[in-house]
Design a binder for these strands. Structure first.
Lengths: 205, 205, 205, 205
DNA sequence: GATGAATGAGAATTCATTCAT
DNA sequence: TATGAATGAATTCTCATTCAT
């Protein structure tokens, strides 16, 4: 009955990741120690090291797991796009919804204890950025997207996405649509197009 | 005598800050210890505590110093603005030029050892964001700027500014104008306006 | 079925001993852990404890095994001795040949990683010393050997044997006869007798 | 007043070495931990690392210190020698007296907890062996000593010296002269010369 | 018996901070 | 004030050993 053992292993790994998510969210990445993570678990200290080498590795695993969940959704959305509008709107809507669905993961990524923000660009996260880049290049080739400096555009998507997400999470009620509408309008038509949006949503400041 | 003492005091503080800048840039914020900073100095360990309480405080001081240098320039630029175009262009041009002038400070702010990015939003940095916010509110009140969701717009400025800055620094030759042009065009007219820019600069991907 | 089981048992024990010999020789006694030994085996960690209680016990087993192999040869040689000359020469020749035959066992016994030398005087090894002592006492009683301080003489045999063995192993070609001749001549006639030997072998320094 | 600080430093180093000597002698080298050494001191754990990197380093320091104390005495004795007899007798007498004077240091070098013997051949100890070798080479060149295989002879001196020392220390009363006489007689004339000695001292077994 | 993951005591080591000089 | 050694809490990590499978 190897099944049981294997199950336990999976459970332990999950337990550590789950505990780490909580601890990182509470203490921030910098202040978190491996001990803190173990303590939030009912495992023995040594067990941690059977699964991860360090807190860095757990952090990466969390990031990667999140990225792995969000990436296909973003990609699918972009594949479906038949116009610039759909491409941009789809990307932002999906991203902000993903953030809203896993606020904790995002909290880990962004704000930490004190004033320190941390973001870890793990392989999966970088792969997500690369995917966006590839899709943009393809969209340009297809004539779907205007020919632009792709690196700068990726940077803009990432920057606007992450920064707005943070403000979005601070607001109550949580309105992913408003965030997506803002980012989309900015990207499609620039700041002068935003007032129409503001008028529509009633949010002018 | 007092003058000399005060001079020494200032020198020691500067020496620590200067050493810290180097060490943070080399080891990354997380891996840096107070000892590392002292070691990069010819001061004794105890002396550190006459000037700072912790590495956090040194980090903050560095941030603040940078912010304090950049903020007035950004503000002046925005005050001078007589149109949306000038407001946006002025902001990005000044920001990217400031980044280029002190690459090291920006390196500390952004990318660290490994895959960890750190950004510390110290009082001065936050004050800079708040200033941008105030200026936007004023600009809207003056009819200079269309009425928009100011928080989201500040977030967009910050996100686009920092992310593009990173790509900009990776490129050789360093072209602050290209970065500013891209960000400005995106903000003023959206992605569809970028190709014109690309055509003009010869950069289409 | 039982036969097979016993065979497996013997095999596992041998496998552990064999692995331990290698690991001790490579890492040195102090640096070797039970894990290292198991790893050099295709057995599971728990299995180790079916055969040995600790690395100490494995070490002892190796020592004992070696001693058990060498002791009868030494004893037989001494029993055959009909004169002091035969007693001394027989002891040294046999000892140095045994060392040469199992350089690895001797390496484990003597020199370790770094500058640490380790020698473990296990029951079997001590029994070997005791046997030498008994045989000397008997030889004295038989008038074969002059009456001497037996403890000091045993110590001298052991000291000269182990130390010279080490130098012998460093030399290329390996010359057990030269080592035995030297030790024998020293024991029989003292340093002044050695030059004759040197002349004979052509080794004068 | 730097004097006080320097004095404290010297005292601390001595305190650690002194404690280490005791602990090694009691627990044996292998079983001793850095913690054990610190605990035998009234210093803080971190202080240990200001003086030594590891227990290995302390051990070496102890060895070196001992070797440094004994070496000049041995060398002086050998320089004084005007004959083979004086050379050999002087070496053994001085060595056994040194051992007797610092039984503890020798205990550390030789027998440990359990059946493990440890000897660390630190730079100073090796230098001592090399000195013996040089002096032998010189003595041979001067015609004082017969031409022999110097390496083997050094090995014999070392082996006989250390092994006999151990037996010597076990006996009560402690008789360095008897040990030296035995070793000297063996080296000068071989085992057949020993009975005369035994007759003289009344010790025949 | 064999397996090998889990255990958890405890070892090594670092480092922020204090404080006598 | 500057110095820098001492402090000792805290952390990482290893490893012998157990025990459910």
């Amino acid at each position: 009955m190897t099944g049981k053992r294997e199950q336990t292993k999976k459970n332990n790994r999950s337990a550590i990741l789950e505990a780490a998510r909580d601890v990182f969210a509470k203490l921030g990445y910098g202040a978190t120690t491996v001990r803190d993570i173990i303590r939030a678990t009912d495992l023995a200290s040594g067990t941690f090291y059977s699964y991860f080498k360090s807190k860095e590795e757990v952090f990466e695993a969390i990031q990667d797991e999140t990225a792995l969940r969000v990436r296909p959704r973003l990609r699918a959305e972009r594949m479906r796009a038949r116009s610039v509008e759909e491409f941009v709107a789809g990307t932002f809507v999906t991203f902000f919804e993903s953030v809203a669905e896993d606020r904790r993961a995002f909290a880990v990524i962004r704000r930490n204890a004190d004033a320190i923000r941390i973001r870890m660009d793990t392989p999966e996260v970088i792969a997500g950025f690369d995917e966006l880049r590839s899709d943009l290049v393809a969209a340009i080739a297809d004539g779907l997207f205007p020919p632009v400096d792709v690196d700068f555009l990726v940077a803009s998507f990432v920057g606007v996405g992450f920064e707005i997400a943070e403000y979005m999470l601070k607001r109550d009620p949580l309105d992913t649509q408003a965030a997506a509408d803002f980012a989309t309008a900015l990207f499609l038509n620039g700041v002068r197009a935003l007032p129409h949006l503001a008028a529509a949503t009633g949010e002018a400041a």
